[in-house]
């Protein structure tokens, strides 16, 4: 290998740099953590699907995955614990032209935010939800989550968990999501492809990514290091597209059913809302976008300050 080639590779940087706030690196995630891997797949999906980054907003809750919002060079919101989905709902409804992604962890989305998760799926709000599931509350030190598989050792179940855990794809399918997929951090290409597919859907999409927490979950449960976890994901994952989500429950060391489980269409919240108002109100109904245009005209004709944002 010649010196010039080495120089060239070094200067090339990371292919997904355009999506990242490189001025915030290094990130806070532990060695072996899978969250960065999911961000890489996400960034690749954005680049591959040529999404307009200017109209993309990303909303996170609290936790290790909640920090994703701080590392992506997008309009990004690090909200409160469990409330990424309702914040994203307001953002999307106020500006329907935005592509809104919710990027958060299993505890944030399915425990403290569980109510919002099911209601957003029921309403079919046009959001793309990426749920990094590390089976644990990691930021706070490895406590039991609603997703922690039975018999796992955690800091709050030092003698092993005994609560049944959530099967998230099953939950969101039942609640009404139009797109449901699950991958692991071993499946980086499949994950990127699923994210790209979700961007083509209108409605509530949910992608679960099983991800290691070597610091707190794998270590406490003697499941080896990050590399051992990758081997486990590789060997025990079974790709079953279209598999019934009821069969996709997780155990500590068993099979992981992955794939695209649900891909269906039904009108999203905004479409239903506009149709209902139009039917009930006829000409009296003023669509939000129409109002924006009218307002700009109003400002142009009646206001001394045409650039003013004034409603």
């Amino acid at each position: 290998m010649s010196d010039s080639l080495v120089t060239e590779i070094t200067n090339a940087g990371n292919p997904v740099d355009a999506i990242l706030r490189t001025d915030r690196m290094p990130h806070i995630w532990c060695p072996g953590c899978g969250i960065g891997t999911t961000v890489n797949s996400f960034a690749r999906a954005l680049i591959d699907s040529k999404i307009d980054l200017g109209s993309l907003a990303l909303v996170s809750g609290i936790g290790c995955t909640g920090r994703v919002a701080g590392y992506v060079k997008l309009d990004s919101f690090h909200t409160t614990h469990g409330r990424a989905i309702p914040f994203a709902t307001g953002l999307k409804l106020a500006n329907p032209n935005l592509n809104v992604v919710v990027y958060s962890g299993d505890g944030d989305l399915s425990a403290i935010g569980g109510n919002h998760l099911i209601h957003a799926a029921r309403r079919n709000i046009d959001l793309k939800v990426i749920c990094v599931n590390n089976l644990i509350y990691a930021m706070t030190g490895g406590q039991t989550a609603p997703t922690t598989p039975g018999h796992s050792i955690t800091s709050t179940n030092p003698y092993g968990t005994f609560e049944p855990s959530f099967n998230l794809p099953h939950l969101v399918e039942a609640a009404g999501a139009v797109y449901v997929a699950r991958w692991t951090t071993f499946h980086v290409r499949q994950l990127a492809r699923s994210i790209s597919e979700a961007f083509k859907k209108k409605g509530f999409s949910f992608i679960e990514v099983i991800s290691p927490c070597p610091t707190l979950y794998q270590r406490r449960n003697k499941l080896g290091d990050a590399l051992d976890t990758m081997k486990y994901y590789k060997e025990k994952s079974k790709v079953r597209n279209g598999s019934p989500t009821s069969e996709a429950g997780l155990t500590m060391t068993g099979e992981i059913i992955v794939g695209k489980f649900v891909d269906r269409d039904r009108p999203d919240y905004g479409t239903m809302m506009r149709a209902q108002y139009a039917e009930a109100l006829g000409d009296e109904y003023v669509e939000q976008d129409q109002r924006e245009q009218d307002r700009m005209e109003h400002d142009r004709t009646e206001n001394d300050q045409p650039e003013m944002v004034c409603s």
């Binding site: 469990g82 307001g90 106020a94």
Partner: peptide, 14 residues
């Protein structure tokens, strides 16, 4: 809980 943050998402949406 949802209402009080949904409105804030809307504010950042304009």
């Amino acid at each position: 809980l949802a209402a009080s943050i949904t409105l804030q998402g809307a504010v950042w949406g304009g």
